[in-house]
Amino acid sequence: MNPPADAPARPSVRLPRFSRAERWVHRTTAALMGVCVLTAAVLYIPQLAVLVGRRELVVRVHECAGLALPVPVLVGLAFRAFRADLRLLNRFGPHDRLWLWAAARRDRRHGARPAGKFNAGQKIYAAWIAGAALVMLGTGLAMWFTHLAPLVWRTAATFVHDWLALAIAVVLAGHIGMALGDPEARRGLRTGTVSGEWAKREHPLWRP
């Protein structure tokens, strides 16, 4: 069934990229993150706070969405395809260094940016956003259950929570912006399959 390892993926074929479970992990995580970001904006931006009011309710929704944020990924660990992709996201090969060099030099030629199933940028994004989400969860809990943490920590946790929220907003905007610029990548997450041409162009080292 599989083409030989060195053969390019045949064009006009739909290649399986994400399993149903993986797509649902992404969907639910994105929805929860969206709720976190929107409620955070209402809590933080004065004009929106004036518009919405209901501060206690907004705080409650934000807390619930934040607590639930890691759940889809934890459920995803039960699925073989998801674990396999986590392994691919974790491991960096020599081609990933080339990709990063090309990105740093703003070299947009596909030949300069070799990538397996995930390119180096996607790998770093995945690892960073996972760590950042856990830091947000930890500092968020310290702000929420103030009697559990030593009291001086509350202000410190608020400080980190606020600034990291700003960083996440910027990075997330980049993530969504790149997805908006690549319909076939979005199709991959919507339907689970991508075109052979796209795979060959964007992920030449990927062997589905």
């Binding site: 491991r91 960096f92 090969g93 199933k117 080292l205």
Partner: peptide
Amino acid sequence: PESPEERNGTPVG
């Protein structure tokens, strides 16, 4: 089947 570097690379992630 994955290329070996995809399986055995450095755990940068």
